[in-house]
Amino acid sequence: MTSTTFRIGGDLDVRRLGFGAMRLRAGPGPAREESLHVARRAVELGVTLIDTAHMYGWGANEELLAEALHPYADGLLIATKVGIARSAEPDGWRHDARPDALRGQVEHALRRLRVERIELLQLHRIDPRVPLAEQLGALRELQAEGKVARIGLSEVTVAELGRAREIIDVAAVQNRYSLLDREHEPVLAACEAAGIAFLPWRPVAGGTPGASAVLAGVASELGATPAQVSLAWLLHRSPVILPIPGTARKEHLEENVAAAGLELTPAQLDRLDRLSGQA
């Protein structure tokens, strides 16, 4: 039986299957109303970890969550991320982890989320133009001021995680990872060894036809969907994994949350584990 909860930073209990708010649409109209319903439904279903970021709508996603959920239920963690700024570059964003920029984004997040302290703040990306000690030092200062409780990282290597841990206590790491995308397996191993929460983004990803067929076969045996099996595998894979699947549809949300109740047999786990070379 897999554990259903994890203690982030050693002191903050959350249910392991969370919700990624990135896909919620914050513009005016029916889509926004649906997004508000989805966020509220997530909490009704027992989700206690919701992930957002300054980058998601440049603050609009944080404001949407506050409108939907404030005042927050006891035990609900809304984690956000900073360190990315809007730009005219082709991707529409750029790294910006200068201390003043990080402080500004944190101040905006506090206001938008209507809180006095962010319980889990993640550096969205390490800025290659700013010394790591300056980036993390700024977050550590905000932590000392009581504006941030725990600090996490996103998209880091094992070496970067190691250097960061010399400067701050790392409570969480958010890297891309899934059943069919295990590039960051070494980072997961490092997090597990240190008791650091590992939040895989894009936790459900497609693979080769052969891998998809195996996944579909296991799903059929369980009367579940391939996405549910993918999420259940993550929960079985390591006790530090906290998947944060995202959706803008209530039906899809309910399907994702139900994945926490799936129990995979040893034989099914073995078949899925062996897909690592077929992604």
Rank of each mutant, 00 (worst) to 15 (best):
Y72C: 03
Q268L: 06
A53F: 03
R86M: 15
E107F: 02
S276P: 04
Q174R: 02
V82H: 03
L36S: 00
I78R: 00
A42Y: 01
I167D: 02
T265P: 01
G75R: 02
Y177W: 09
A194W: 15
I84Y: 01
D13V: 10
P239C: 04
G57T: 01
A42R: 00
H252Y: 06
I8Y: 00
T2I: 13
A197I: 03
T52F: 03
V158L: 09
Y56C: 01
E119D: 13
E255R: 05
G27M: 09
G46Q: 09
G217Q: 13
H236G: 11
I126V: 15
L64C: 04
R103E: 13
A259Y: 05
M55I: 05
A219P: 04
G146E: 12
V257P: 02
R150N: 03
D169Q: 13
L24F: 10
P71D: 04
E251N: 11
L77M: 08
A138E: 04
V240D: 00
L231S: 07
M22P: 11
T225Q: 12
R129N: 15
P209S: 13
D13P: 04
S276A: 15
E34K: 06
L272T: 00
T225V: 10
L110T: 10
H236W: 15
A194M: 15
R202M: 10
I151M: 05
A193T: 14
A88K: 05
A260I: 05
A172T: 03
R111A: 14
E160Y: 08
P245S: 11
L188M: 13
L121E: 00
A159D: 15
A193G: 14
L65N: 01
D127I: 05
E183H: 12
E33I: 03
M1A: 08
A149S: 14
A73S: 15
Y56N: 02
L121T: 01
A267Q: 14
G277S: 09
E192C: 09
S35K: 05
A248K: 08
L69Y: 04
P226C: 14
A79P: 02
E185L: 14
L235C: 06
L188N: 04
G59K: 06
A60D: 11
R41A: 09
A205K: 14
R25N: 08
R182K: 12
T52C: 07
W233C: 04
A216K: 12
L161F: 08
N175P: 08
L139F: 08
S35A: 15
